[in-house]
Design a protein around this nucleic acid. Structure first.
Length: 404
DNA sequence: AGTCCACAGGAAGGGCAGGCGA
DNA sequence: TCGCCTGCCCTTCCTGTGGACT
């Protein structure tokens, strides 16, 4: 009986004496804590670099490096927010413009980036239609409308540079020559340590006036971070002793990623809550780890464009047939069949080759370019899915491509 | 030593949708 | 309405290439 089921679910929830979360928000990515453990040095350095803005002069541009989850964003947000606050009391206003360049449809092209910056300055701009040059003029005008220091934070700038090249950065470097009143500085944040080698030397020297490196956290440091957040997020005594060390250890294995550690802790808590248990145990952490991996992949597959799904399905079926690794040509043949059966008009092999490379980037498959001598050079493709995930993915794709 | 396979992957450009001002 | 601009997806054409085979 579904009705009684529902009732019992709700009643159990109300009756349940267990309370796990005090403030779930404290474990979220967007939460900016009041103190940031093990980043005191970086905070101080960044603050020292940016401080001249409070006297109305232009601070040096900064490049911040570090792998994901090493606190780059959180430190930058923290320091710039404080700076902006303090500047309200001084005679020299400071404006912070924060943009995440990886955000799809917001700042993943030059046009969209400038448009987003204009929007942050309070001017709505059409999504498309204007010439980019005109947009630059508008942007310059908005910035120059006041006598102030504007600090533009470009987070995940590597994503944008890889996509559209570094020419826009060159345009940015010359911005101060166009301005009469305002002064502009840049903070570039990147996950890619090699980014600077990819840049035009002119851009390199002017944007990289200061460089900061954020090293990965070790397990002990991650524990401190988790403890601090757990205090805010959970009720006292809810976490079993080994939960935080376990989350920290797992995340430390993955390049000291604090974001991952926080995710693990949050999901472990949610699982315990759902199971109506009064304590979060290491068992829940294990479940959380599986759940996160599972969700990431299944979500990635679900949101794949139609043709990418067809290619992925073709890869799976071709591997089934061959019982080994397969190459691009085999997959393409099968892909054409899939298209024929579903009424899709097939893309060219060139395009499919790119789609396969994208699936590789998403971690759904392993693609390795190998040479088979006489028999050509190709990409050797194998699947890269845990068994439970693979089962679910097969189900999803089967209903889509083998409806009969 | 030279050939040649089966692609990888770069470059350029076409076509489209969304949006602008005139 | 038109001409123009944009990003995006895709095709066409092309050059490059590691190593088994001759």
């Amino acid at each position: 009986m579904p009705q009684t089921n529902l009732q019992s679910i709700f009643q159990n929830f109300i009756k349940s004496p267990t309370k796990i979360f005090k403030d779930r928000n404290a474990l979220s990515v967007n939460f900016t804590p009041s103190t940031i453990p093990h980043r005191e040095k970086q905070i101080e350095t960044l603050a020292t670099i940016l401080a001249p803005s409070l006297k109305g002069s232009k601070p040096s541009n900064v490049f911040i490096y570090g792998t994901t989850g090493t606190g780059k964003t959180v430190v930058t947000k923290y320091v710039t927010q404080e700076l902006e606050k303090i500047s309200l009391q001084s005679l020299n206003p400071v404006k912070i413009l924060y943009v995440n360049c990886k955000m799809k449809k917001v700042a993943d092209t030059e046009y969209r980036l400038i448009a987003e910056l204009c929007r942050l300055l309070g001017q709505e701009v059409p999504f498309t239609g204007l010439p980019t040059e005109q947009l630059y003029h508008l942007f310059f005008k908005l910035i120059d409308a006041r006598k102030w220091v504007v600090i533009i934070v470009l987070d995940e700038i590597d994503a944008l540079v890889k996509k559209i090249g570094d020419e826009f950065l060159y345009n940015f470097t010359r911005i101060n020559q166009e301005l009469k009143n305002a002064k502009v500085s840049f903070i570039g944040i990147t996950n890619d340590l090699n980014l600077i080698q990819m840049l035009d030397p002119r851009v390199k020297s002017s944007l990289g006036e200061e460089e900061m490196l954020f090293p990965p956290y070790n397990a002990l440091e991650l524990q401190d971070i988790l403890k601090q957040r757990a205090k805010l997020a959970f009720y006292d005594g809810v976490l079993e002793e080994d939960v935080i060390p376990k989350c920290a250890a797992l995340a430390a294995q993955e390049h000291g990623d604090a974001r991952k550690a926080l995710d693990l802790l949050r999901v472990a808590g949610e699982i315990a809550e759902r199971q109506n248990e009064s304590k979060v145990t290491s068992k829940h952490v294990d479940m959380a780890r599986k759940k996160l991996a599972y969700e990431r992949i299944v979500e990635a597959v679900k949101t794949l464009p139609k043709h990418s799904k067809a290619v992925f399905w073709a890869i799976i079926k071709t591997i089934d047939e061959k019982k080994e690794s397969v190459q691009t040509g085999d997959v393409y043949k099968f892909y054409e069949d899939v298209c024929k059966n579903t009424g899709l008009s097939p893309l060219t092999q060139r395009r499919v080759s790119d789609l396969i490379a994208e699936l590789d980037m998403l971690g759904l498959i392993n693609g390795r370019v190998i040479s088979k001598g006489r028999y050509g050079r190709t990409r050797e493709i194998t699947l890269n899915l845990a068994s439970d995930v693979e089962k679910k993915v097969r189900e999803l794709l089967k209903t889509e491509f083998e409806s009969d």
